[in-house]
Design a protein around this nucleic acid. Structure first.
Length: 273
DNA sequence: AATTCCCCCAACCGCGCCCTG
DNA sequence: GCAGGGCGCGGTTGGGGGAAT
């Protein structure tokens, strides 16, 4: 693409950060605030790439970070959010104040994956692992995670509307309308909003058009036509706003007709999707 | 006590999206 | 409308440390 390098690699440090570098970065951000990562290293006197500074701050130095173990509740919330969102770690992190996307991603890969497997659940599809190489079967049937989107591939219409328990099979085109318009921060977990106070994870599902009309050729190629989908999939529920997705990020709800959205109703006791 | 193995996590890398001129 | 810059995200890697032998 001809992108220029984000920094002069010859003059930047790599690898683990030293205490002195941390102190410099903290002092600079305290004095000047976050932002303008490209110029920050020079201004702060750091021989680091701007991206490296941002990562260090976001994942390790931020004062609002919560260190320590994840609780079982955290685990369950992450699992549910992953079922909804796929590998959208920043969105998941947005629902867990004080946790970073990197931390959750690592935790998922090291703990939760194993936990789900031990329960007999495929961590990618959130479907039961049946005998006979279900993962391969799932892959063959297009249920594995898309390499470009991180979402499970859309199951055939109606096929996943009522999966067998305990699977939580959420097609990627399921969206969720937010009752208010206040969600904004997509990452960083610095939001002051209460932790997912009214997030209804027991979604009332319907089959709708893709949340985001893919711009990538591959994604576009896999999509029949938007018109066809509009005809086949009448109802759209948008989750993106509620989870703090910015306009245009993984969702184009703002550009679509609001008439296409509807709110979710809580499920009855014992009801499941 | 020494060595090897394995796990975990901080950090890097490349890509895609958004914004601006 | 287009191109380039900058930021953020997700996948991957490598080193440190603890467990096992």
């Amino acid at each position: 693409m001809g992108r220029s390098p984000c920094c002069e690699k010859a003059h930047t440090n790599k690898g683990a950060w030293t205490k002195e570098e941390d102190q410099r970065l903290i002092a600079y951000i305290k004095a000047h605030g976050e932002g303008c990562w490209r110029s920050l290293p020079k201004a702060a006197g750091l021989l680091r790439c701007g991206k490296s500074c941002r990562l260090r701050w976001m994942n390790y130095l931020r004062p609002d970070l919560k260190r320590g173990n994840f609780t079982d509740d955290d685990d369950e919330l992450i699992i549910k959010l992953h079922a909804l969102l796929g590998n959208k770690w920043s969105l998941i992190a947005g629902q867990l104040p004080g946790r970073t996307d990197n931390e959750i991603k690592n935790y998922w890969n090291t703990h939760i994956k194993r936990k789900l497997l031990s329960r007999g659940i495929d961590p990618q599809t959130h479907r039961p692992l049946s005998g006979g190489g279900s993962a391969a079967a799932a892959a063959a049937s297009g249920l594995t995670t898309s390499s470009t989107t991180g979402f499970p591939s859309p199951p055939p219409p109606q096929a996943s509307i009522r999966p067998a328990r305990p699977a939580i099979a959420i097609p990627p085109n399921v969206m969720f309308a937010a009752p208010s318009e206040d969600g904004h921060s997509s990452s960083g977990g610095s939001s002051d909003a209460p932790r997912c106070p009214d997030l209804n994870l027991d979604l009332d599902l319907s089959v709708g058009p893709p949340c985001s009309p893919p711009k990538t050729p591959a994604a576009a190629a896999s999509t029949p036509t938007s018109q066809q989908q509009q005809q086949q999939r009448p109802t759209t529920i948008c989750l993106c706003y509620h989870l703090g997705v910015r306009n245009g990020e993984a969702c184009s709800c703002k550009t679509t007709s609001p008439a296409g959205f509807r709110f979710l109703r809580p499920l009855e006791e014992g009801q499941y999707i």
